[in-house]
Each structure stands twice: as structure tokens, then as C-alpha cells.
Measured scan of single mutants.
Amino acid sequence: NRRVIAMPSVRKYAREKGVDIRLVQGTGKNGRVLKEDIDAWLAG
């Protein structure tokens, strides 16, 4: 149960899109989840 590193704005964006942020692979520094990662996850 790893802790997800993401800015609050990215967490909010994921919530609005209905994405469980824990399932998204972060590509930022130290595995940080970026807004682009959410978009990529939604695109498949």
C-alpha cells in the first residue's frame, strides 16, 4: 500500500475524472503522478 506522490490539484483532477490515482503510474520526479499521467491513463 504505497503512498502516492501527487500535487493536490492533480488529485482533484483525478477525482473529477473518476480515476483511482493509486492505479496510475507516475512519470514525474520520484514517481510523482502528473496531470499528463492521468490523461494517459484515461486514453488507455
Rank of each mutant, 00 (worst) to 15 (best):
N1W: 03
N1I: 09
N1R: 04
N1L: 04
N1P: 13
N1V: 10
N1T: 10
R2K: 15
R2Q: 14
R2V: 15
R2W: 04
R2C: 15
R3I: 15
R3E: 15
R3L: 15
R3W: 04
V4D: 04
V4S: 03
V4L: 05
V4H: 04
V4G: 04
I5A: 05
I5K: 07
I5H: 07
I5P: 05
I5C: 05
I5S: 06
I5D: 07
A6W: 02
A6F: 02
A6G: 02
A6L: 02
A6D: 02
A6E: 02
M7P: 09
M7N: 15
M7F: 15
M7T: 15
M7Y: 15
M7I: 08
P8Q: 08
P8M: 07
P8K: 15
P8A: 14
P8D: 05
S9I: 13
S9Y: 12
S9H: 15
S9V: 12
S9A: 15
S9G: 11
S9Q: 14
V10N: 02
V10M: 03
V10T: 07
V10K: 01
V10R: 01
V10W: 01
V10Q: 02
V10D: 04
V10P: 01
R11L: 05
R11C: 03
R11W: 08
R11N: 02
R11Y: 05
K12L: 10
K12F: 07
K12S: 06
K12V: 06
K12W: 07
Y13Q: 03
Y13D: 02
Y13S: 02
A14I: 01
A14W: 01
A14N: 00
A14F: 01
R15E: 06
R15M: 10
R15S: 08
R15G: 07
R15W: 09
R15Y: 09
R15N: 09
R15P: 00
E16M: 11
E16Q: 12
E16W: 09
E16T: 11
E16G: 10
K17H: 14
K17N: 14
K17R: 11
K17M: 14
K17V: 13
K17L: 12
K17F: 09
K17Y: 08
K17P: 00
G18R: 12
G18E: 10
G18P: 01
G18V: 06
G18A: 11
G18Y: 10
G18K: 13
G18W: 09
G18L: 11
G18Q: 11
V19E: 00
V19F: 03
V19S: 02
V19Y: 01
V19Q: 02
D20F: 05
D20K: 07
D20W: 07
D20N: 12
D20I: 07
D20A: 08
I21N: 00
I21P: 04
I21G: 01
I21Y: 05
I21K: 00
I21V: 07
I21M: 05
R22G: 09
R22F: 12
R22Y: 14
R22K: 10
R22C: 10
L23F: 13
L23R: 13
L23V: 13
L23G: 10
L23E: 11
L23M: 12
L23A: 11
L23P: 02
L23H: 10
L23I: 12
V24F: 04
V24Y: 01
V24H: 01
V24R: 01
V24N: 00
Q25T: 14
Q25E: 14
Q25F: 14
Q25P: 14
Q25D: 14
Q25W: 15
G26W: 03
G26C: 03
G26Q: 04
G26A: 10
G26H: 04
G26M: 03
T27G: 08
T27W: 04
T27L: 05
T27S: 12
T27A: 05
T27P: 02
T27C: 05
G28L: 03
G28K: 03
G28S: 05
G28W: 02
G28E: 03
G28C: 03
G28H: 04
G28Q: 03
K29P: 09
K29T: 11
K29D: 09
K29G: 09
K29Q: 10
K29V: 09
K29W: 09
N30T: 08
N30Y: 13
N30Q: 11
N30F: 13
N30D: 12
N30K: 14
N30H: 13
N30P: 02
G31V: 02
G31H: 11
G31E: 09
G31Y: 09
G31R: 09
G31W: 07
G31P: 02
R32L: 08
R32S: 09
R32Y: 07
R32W: 08
V33H: 01
V33R: 02
V33T: 09
V33K: 03
L34M: 12
L34F: 13
L34E: 12
L34I: 09
L34N: 10
L34Q: 09
L34H: 13
L34D: 08
K35A: 08
K35W: 05
K35E: 07
K35M: 10
K35D: 05
K35R: 12
E36Y: 14
E36N: 14
E36V: 15
E36Q: 15
E36K: 15
D37I: 00
D37F: 00
D37Y: 00
D37R: 00
D37W: 00
D37Q: 01
D37A: 01
D37C: 01
D37G: 01
I38W: 00
I38A: 01
I38K: 00
I38H: 00
I38L: 05
I38R: 00
D39A: 06
D39S: 06
D39G: 04
D39H: 06
D39P: 00
D39K: 09
A40L: 13
A40M: 12
A40D: 11
A40G: 12
A40Q: 13
W41G: 03
W41E: 05
W41F: 13
W41T: 06
W41A: 08
L42Q: 08
L42P: 05
L42V: 12
L42M: 12
L42F: 11
A43K: 12
A43F: 12
A43T: 14
A43P: 08
A43E: 12
A43Y: 12
G44I: 12
G44R: 13
G44F: 12
G44V: 14
G44S: 13
G44W: 13
G44M: 14
